[in-house]
């Protein structure tokens, strides 16, 4: 019993030294070098702000000025006077609704285009013409239709989300390996079951690539849309801060928007791994 105990201690100690010997390289690659990158960026900001103090606040000044926002992200001080957490939540809500509706429409359309040559010939020119249009160009049309800021913003996000998902889904469906289809044919699988059991899972990696690109663009676009439509949201916060000559808050918003975008992409990547059982491709 005692012997067993001491062996266990040795094992634990050995494991610890093994981890320690591994640690330096890991710490350097995953912590120190990225930190160095951020330090460089903050130094550049600090240098510019110190020499031209009329242009922008230094990082420290910005931090102090934003302390209230950072410490109390979810305050409610009267109508329209909300913490940055609420603003972020409002923007995320618009993006997720618009993106979700977009995916619901885009994935079936992409399937149709990928599976039928006629559908491809009919829809491809339309998509090629609408794809390069800036999503913001849809805003006046949306405002005319809905007469309200919020549905208009969601509509613009919806339009934005369509194209990359349609194109990637169609690509994925049309490039399903003939070998997989041959397996299904030899097994005498009916066509409709092939769609769900073979074609859909085989093209999921492409669909997810499309979804990730769509969500990334949607998050870019929501800031611009909210600047134009106003209301509650992180985009309007940027515009409002600039109007109040409060550049510190704009810097805060930039950082928050950036981190949120990164987190959104990370979450979709995680869902992709979970759904497809295969490592997500880097896009």
């Amino acid at each position: 019993m005692l012997l067993q105990f001491s062996i266990q201690i040795i094992l634990v100690a050995a494991q610890a030294t093994w981890r320690r010997s591994l640690r330096p390289a890991l710490v350097r690659d995953s912590v120190l070098l990225p930190l160095l990158g951020f330090a460089g960026l903050i130094f550049l900001w600090w240098a510019i702000a110190s020499f031209r103090s009329e242009l922008m606040p230094t990082p420290w000044q910005a931090l102090v000025a934003n302390l209230d926002y950072i410490l109390h992200p979810f305050y409610r001080r009267g109508p329209g006077n909300l913490g940055i957490g609420w603003l972020l939540a409002a923007s995320l809500r618009r993006v997720l609704i618009g993106f979700g509706l977009g995916a619901l429409v885009a994935i079936p359309i992409g399937f149709l285009i990928g599976m039928s040559r006629q559908a491809m010939l009919a829809l491809n020119p339309v998509i090629q013409i609408l794809k390069p249009v800036s999503p913001l160009a849809w805003l006046p049309i949306a405002l005319t239709i809905f007469n309200l800021a919020n549905p208009s913003a969601i509509f613009v996000i919806f339009i934005t989300s369509l194209w990359p998902t349609i194109i990637n889904t169609a690509l994925g469906v049309s490039s399903v390996s003939k070998d997989y289809i041959d397996v299904a044919r030899v097994l005498e699988m009916p066509r409709w079951r092939q769609v769900f059991k073979i074609i859909l899972p085989a093209s999921l990696p492409y669909i997810f690539t499309g979804l990730r690109i769509s969500l990334g663009i949607a998050w870019l676009v929501i800031v611009a849309v909210e600047m134009l439509t106003g209301g509650i949201g992180i985009g309007f916060f940027v515009w409002d801060s600039w109007n109040r000559l409060n550049l510190s808050s704009v810097f805060l918003a930039v950082i928050v928007i950036g981190i949120t975008g990164l987190v959104l992409d990370y979450i979709v990547g995680k869902i992709q791994v979970w759904v497809t059982h295969r490592p997500a491709s880097q896009t």
């Binding site: 397996v183 030899v186 899972p201 999921l204 059982h277």
Partner: peptide, 19 residues
């Protein structure tokens, strides 16, 4: 037409990678 009573073993296996 193809039928399961004549089952194929494929040169490149043709396993479904998500299963």
């Amino acid at each position: 037409k193809p039928g399961a009573e004549r089952m194929m073993v494929f040169q490149h296996y043709s396993l479904l990678p998500w299963l």
